[in-house]
Design a protein around this nucleic acid. Structure first.
Length: 375
RNA sequence: GCGGAAUUGGUGAAGUGGUUAACACGCCGGAUUGUGGCUCCGGUAUGCGUGGGUUCGAUCCCCACAUUUCGCC
């Protein structure tokens, strides 16, 4: 079955949109936040818990699964869904982000990218074709083109030649894409520059993809202003009837600003990473559960949260103790809560789009979340 | 009872006759945006057992006391 996207409604005052995605693993609505499961696991969560937080779709990673356990192992298991015992939709990233996070600039060539395997030091060469072939085998529901994700500090000149190469890579990847059940997305790059984003978007659209990602955002201390420009200057030149996905975006306010600029999908490691480091997202801001003030705070994280952790009445004091003692249950309880918080945020956003009140929603959110901090 | 050794922050400890007493852990904060999972960045002793002395100056030298510890009778 071919996965399908339907645009249901556009918000009256902004570019926000409501849609749904039908896959053979179920249908979900957009805007949606996708929890990250790089190593074929949303860290510390069981698949039942992933379902429990109402995740419409999760994300996994080509590069990491290529290295370990290897795409053939997953292929022999019957694909990634079977392998990880998860029967919901999955999106795979192409390894493009690892070009940014793991490779050195000198190792990036027209042909592909040379990586030094971070597990055992082996030299590995990843190409656009190889990335797509691996994703074909993983049998994810949505695959990403292999792109170069340049740092926010990249110069205009560098970005220009980088987006040209990313477009050539997108063409090469599409040529070898053989999985009929899988959507393939192109990726728009170009930093905060409108002419580069425009060119990148238009050239990528010419190739023709099932959806378009906005990449190169939220890298190395990019300003919020530049990030929102990147959103706007990308979606402006993308077709309305196709999905848009802001890669790596996950701060609550950034999700709202992204939605307002016409983005449908978001993913971010932050809810799980923050959880491991002892932070909880709440309507009234992010809290650091390790702070001494929670030592004897026997209340739940949030009164109006419907996640397992809050509904089961685990207290801040107990979770604090677990985190301080480095017990994995602490990371798990906070991960469940944080992911649920972001998915619940998208539920409220969808409701606001239905009511044409996304700007009011944003204003109220900022008031609650940042309080007097005046963000 | 005799002899030796030790005494530095919450802990383990380094150190010097002369501006801000190393480091680690802990503790207290902060960071974290397509995840290289025990990470990164700050802060944390106005005082070096107590009392005297020597000295321009002592945590560092000397004396006494206290405490701890080891050995011997």
């Amino acid at each position: 079955m071919k996965i399908e996207y339907t645009l249901l409604k556009e918000e009256k005052n902004t570019s926000a949109r409501l849609g749904n995605i039908k896959t053979k693993y179920g249908t979900f609505e957009t805007p949606m936040f996708m929890p990250v499961g790089t190593e074929a696991t949303v860290k510390t969560l069981s698949v039942e818990e992933i379902k429990d937080v109402h995740a419409g779709i999760i994300l996994s990673n080509t590069y990491h699964l290529w290295l370990r356990p290897g795409e053939d192992v997953i292929d022999h298991a019957g694909g990634l869904h079977e392998f990880m015992h998860y029967n919901g939709p999955i999106l795979t990233d192409s390894g493009g982000f690892q070009v940014f996070s793991l490779a050195k600039p000198k190792d990036i060539t027209e042909e592909g990218v040379l990586f030094k395997n971070h597990i055992n030091g082996d030299k590995l060469f990843l190409t656009p074709e190889k990335s797509i072939e691996i994703q074909n085998k993983l049998d994810s529901d949505i695959a990403m083109s292999f792109d170069e994700c340049p740092p926010a500090s990249a110069t205009y000149e560098y970005l220009k030649q980088s987006i040209e190469r990313t477009v050539r890579w997108a063409k090469r990847g599409k040529l070898v894409h053989k999985n009929e059940n899988q959507m393939l997305f192109g990726i728009v790059q170009g930093g905060p520059y409108e002419d580069l984003r425009k060119w990148s978007a238009e050239e990528t659209v010419k190739i023709g993809f099932d959806g378009y990602s906005i990449g190169g955002v939220a890298n190395d201390h990019e300003s919020k202003e530049d990030m929102y420009k990147a959103f706007e200057f990308s979606t402006k030149y993308l077709p309305k009837n196709k999905l848009r996905y802001a890669m790596g975006i996950g701060e609550p306010i950034d999700i709202i600003e992204g939605v307002i600029r016409g983005i449908d999908l978001f993913d971010c490691v932050s809810p799980t990473r923050l959880a491991r480091h002892g932070h909880a997202l709440t309507k009234y801001g992010k809290i650091n559960i390790k702070n001494a003030q929670y030592k004897e705070d026997f209340s739940t994280l949030s009164l109006d949260c419907d996640c397992y952790t809050c509904q089961s009445k685990y207290s801040k004091a107990y979770i604090r103790h677990l985190i301080v003692a480095n017990e994995t249950l602490g990371a798990r309880l906070l991960s469940i809560h944080n992911i649920r918080f972001l998915i619940h945020l998208t539920e409220e956003i969808r409701l606001a789009i239905k009511n044409d009140s996304i700007l009011e929603y944003k204003e109220q959110f900022i008031k609650d979340y940042y309080g007097d901090k005046n963000e």
